[in-house]
Simulated assay, not measured.
Amino acid sequence: MVAKIHVSGLREFQAQLRAMDAGLPRQLRLALNAAAEEIIDYAEPRFPRRSGRAARSLKARSTQRVARIALGGRAAPYAPWLDFGGEGRIKGRPSKRPFIREGRYVYKGLEVRRDRVTEIMSDALAQLARDAGLEVS
């Protein structure tokens, strides 16, 4: 399951920002990262801990159009298994963990904090438009 929040006209908004000031689309990426951080703030303390590497592996990795959260990587390649479950692929480890398609932590964070994420994005886009000299209603 990929949960999405769709903003209509984002591509056009980004193009208009770029036409006014080349630095404004970068601020759009930072706004998306702020929304992703809200979800990370929910998920990180809920991740199981032994060393804490899986929880620390949660990173906002947004583009100018898409908010993303990366987890795992070389430091904690098992982090997706902690979140979603499934069968371990290395003999004896990790053991089988019930598979939950919606995940236990990250997507749950979006579900729980959707209103706050929407508010962060709305405020950030409005402020970005004001900074660009556009009228916001």
Score class of each variant (00 low, 15 high):
residue 84 F to A: 05
residue 16 Q to D: 13
residue 16 Q to Y: 12
residue 71 L to Y: 05
residue 90 I to Y: 12
residue 16 Q to P: 00
residue 88 G to K: 04
residue 49 R to Y: 09
residue 49 R to Q: 00
residue 82 L to H: 13
residue 24 L to R: 12
residue 123 D to T: 13
residue 23 G to D: 15
residue 124 A to R: 15
residue 34 A to P: 04
residue 61 R to E: 15
residue 108 K to I: 07
residue 61 R to N: 14
residue 32 L to K: 13
residue 62 S to T: 08
residue 65 R to T: 09
residue 42 Y to K: 02
residue 48 P to S: 04
residue 8 S to T: 06
residue 135 E to D: 07
residue 6 H to T: 15
residue 97 R to L: 07
residue 50 R to A: 11
residue 98 P to N: 10
residue 24 L to F: 12
residue 29 R to P: 08
residue 78 Y to F: 05
residue 45 P to D: 13
residue 22 A to L: 07
residue 2 V to P: 08
residue 7 V to A: 02
residue 75 A to W: 12
residue 116 R to Q: 08
residue 109 G to C: 04
residue 112 V to A: 15
residue 65 R to C: 00
residue 87 E to V: 11
residue 60 A to W: 07
residue 56 R to V: 00
residue 37 E to Q: 15
residue 72 G to W: 14
residue 134 L to A: 13
residue 3 A to I: 14
residue 48 P to Q: 01
residue 39 I to A: 01
residue 132 A to N: 02
residue 62 S to E: 06
residue 81 W to C: 10
residue 22 A to Q: 04
residue 17 L to A: 05
residue 39 I to M: 13
residue 110 L to N: 09
residue 128 L to H: 03
residue 20 M to S: 14
residue 75 A to H: 05
residue 51 S to C: 08
residue 88 G to W: 00
residue 14 Q to M: 11
residue 105 Y to M: 00
residue 36 A to H: 09
residue 47 F to L: 07
residue 4 K to M: 11
residue 22 A to Y: 03
residue 76 A to N: 07
residue 20 M to Y: 11
residue 19 A to K: 15
residue 52 G to T: 06
residue 86 G to P: 01
residue 40 I to M: 04
residue 33 N to E: 14
residue 109 G to S: 03
residue 24 L to K: 14
residue 41 D to F: 07
residue 30 L to S: 14
residue 101 R to Q: 13
residue 93 R to I: 05
residue 81 W to V: 09
residue 78 Y to Q: 01
residue 114 R to C: 00
residue 92 G to L: 07
residue 17 L to T: 03
residue 52 G to F: 03
residue 27 Q to F: 04
residue 97 R to F: 02
residue 61 R to V: 12
residue 28 L to N: 10
residue 54 A to H: 01
residue 74 R to T: 06
residue 53 R to Y: 12
residue 44 E to P: 09
residue 29 R to L: 10
residue 55 A to Y: 05
residue 41 D to N: 13
residue 111 E to Q: 12
residue 10 L to E: 01
residue 115 D to K: 15
residue 116 R to I: 06
residue 6 H to C: 05
residue 12 E to K: 12
residue 55 A to F: 09
residue 28 L to I: 08
residue 33 N to S: 10
residue 119 E to H: 01
residue 34 A to R: 02
residue 62 S to Q: 03
residue 5 I to S: 00
residue 124 A to N: 14
residue 64 Q to C: 06
residue 100 I to Y: 00
residue 36 A to L: 01
residue 56 R to K: 08
residue 2 V to R: 09
residue 37 E to M: 15
residue 16 Q to T: 11
residue 127 Q to K: 15
residue 37 E to Y: 14
residue 78 Y to M: 00
residue 84 F to Y: 11
residue 94 P to R: 06
residue 57 S to L: 11
residue 43 A to C: 08
residue 106 V to S: 01
residue 133 G to S: 09
residue 27 Q to M: 02
residue 88 G to Q: 10
residue 50 R to F: 07
residue 48 P to K: 02
residue 72 G to I: 13
residue 136 V to A: 06
residue 111 E to K: 10
residue 116 R to F: 04
residue 124 A to I: 02
residue 62 S to R: 07
residue 107 Y to N: 15
